[in-house]
């Protein structure tokens, strides 16, 4: 689980180790990654909205 989230976070900044990538793609089931990616994206958007609103005062 943590490994999936770690990969998705790595994707967000665009840096990943080759060894980790091989692990990611070793499983043929992408569903976990897709769900995690959507969740992380939502959280990312919410954080950004929060920051923007705080900055806007």
């Amino acid at each position: 689980m943590w490994s999936i989230i770690q990969s998705v976070l790595a994707a967000l900044i665009g840096v990943q180790k080759d060894r980790k990538r091989q692990q990611d793609f070793a499983s043929e089931k992408p569903l976990g990654f897709i769900v995690a990616a959507i969740l992380v994206t939502l959280i990312f958007v919410l954080i950004l909205i929060l920051v923007a609103n705080i900055a806007a005062g």
Partner: peptide
């Protein structure tokens, strides 16, 4: 250099492009 990073960066760019 950084094949894995390239794949992940492409995915990130695609996702961010909606925002």
């Amino acid at each position: 250099f950084g094949y894995a990073s390239m794949v992940y960066a492409t995915a990130a760019i695609a996702l961010l492009s909606f925002l």
